[in-house]
């Protein structure tokens, strides 16, 4: 029997008893990042393939959501910083060993490309907005530029989308100190999940039956892959080192079991899959907007739970001998 106790109280806020450094902001940022990646990936693909007649929403209306979603995501990231005024420090150095440094520089590339992608589809997608932008010389210049380099922009968009999508997963999986994150499956999982979220956004936005039908099929495939990746991730953890096995156990019992299965897998993955399958069988009804909403919810929950699980999983398992809450009397 081993009794391991902290005999001096340790209660560093947000670190003890287990990490709580990241609340909703980082999951929301990761979700927005993944969604942006999915949007850019689909939009760039359609632009490159010149299928805008066939997929009008994706090719014309969807791109503008990339910079918007990304901006909101970056706002969330900013909100998470505890030393906010030094945010500019991200851009005074490049740290090749730091995924977060890579991420911040990737974002710096993604951002203008996402704007150019939006710009080159603006006049068809949102004619009124296109006219508005054209009134300003700089706006017109950007739109004209993007239209001239449509293919190049879309190529960049495609590549950066994949980078961005992977990055949101690598950001976490690079933390070897957190057993639940330390698996190579997170990057593809987050990329696929971002694409699935983007597909859900398409289902919500499109009025085109063909587009809807196709993206329902795409989403079914993506959700299936996602499910498989989740299963592989859990298997990977459950067959890993001691701390990883312990981490995987958190979803099979303990405090994360209900959130994971009842609030994530069933409503956020299984239900949209079933509903979209029904829809494919031609049983679509007006309330079917529920399935993409659930898919988006599932996309966020995946990140939220992953972030929480990773923070809870640890190499250490120290318990205070005395009530750490008593230190609040001093703070």
């Amino acid at each position: 029997m081993l009794e391991e106790l902290l005999v001096t109280v340790r209660s560093n806020p947000k670190i003890d008893p287990s990490l709580g450094i990241w609340s909703w902001e980082i999951p929301a940022y990761l979700f927005m990042g993944g969604l942006t990646a999915g949007i850019m990936l689909f939009a760039s693909l359609m632009v490159l393939l010149a299928r805008d007649e066939e997929f009008p929403f994706v090719a014309r209306k969807l791109p503008i959501w990339a910079p918007i979603v990304l901006s909101v995501g970056m706002l969330f990231l900013f909100l998470d910083l505890s030393h906010k005024l030094y945010v500019w420090r991200f851009y005074t150095s490049f740290q090749p060993s730091s995924p977060m440094s890579w991420g911040s520089w990737i974002l710096l590339l993604v951002y203008p490309v996402s704007i150019l992608l939006a710009a080159c589809t603006l006049r068809q997608g949102y004619p009124w907005l296109g006219r508005l932008v054209d009134r300003f010389a700089i706006g017109k210049g950007i739109v004209d530029f993007s239209c001239r380099h449509r293919a190049t922009v879309a190529q960049w968009g495609l590549v950066l989308a994949v980078f961005l999508g992977f990055y949101t997963g690598i950001l976490l999986s690079a933390f070897s100190a957190r057993p639940f994150w330390n698996t190579g499956f997170l990057a593809p999982l987050f990329l696929v999940s971002g694409m699935s979220a983007a597909a859900a956004l398409v289902l919500l936005g499109t009025r085109n039956e063909h587009e809807r039908h196709t993206f329902t099929r795409i989403d079914i495939v993506l959700i299936t892959i996602k499910l498989a990746l989740i299963a592989l991730l859990l298997v990977n953890l459950a067959t890993g080192s001691g701390v990883q096995i312990e981490a995987s156990q958190m979803v099979f019992g303990g405090e994360f079991a209900i959130p994971f299965w009842v609030f994530f897998i069933i409503p956020g993955v299984m239900l949209p899959l079933i509903l979209e399958y029904w829809e494919l069988k031609g049983r679509r009804r007006a309330w079917m907007f529920i399935s993409p909403v659930l898919a988006l919810y599932g996309g966020y929950m995946l990140r939220h739970l992953t972030v929480d699980l990773g923070q809870t999983s640890s190499y250490l398992n120290y318990v205070n001998a005395f009530d750490p809450a008593l230190l609040d009397l001093l703070r």
């Binding site: 560093n12 806020p13 947000k14 670190i15 003890d16 990490l19 450094i21 990241w22 998470d80 910083l81 505890s82 030393h83 906010k84 030094y86 945010v87 420090r89 991200f90 005074t92 730091s98 977060m100 933390f175 070897s176 100190a177 957190r178 990773g310 923070q311 640890s314 190499y315 250490l316 703070r331």
Partner: peptide
Amino acid sequence: KCTGCKACIAACPYDARLIMTPDG
């Protein structure tokens, strides 16, 4: 130079880092 992104906290298997109050 610290933005308070807290990545280093997550990166430490010993949980040896802390967030300075009130600065962050």
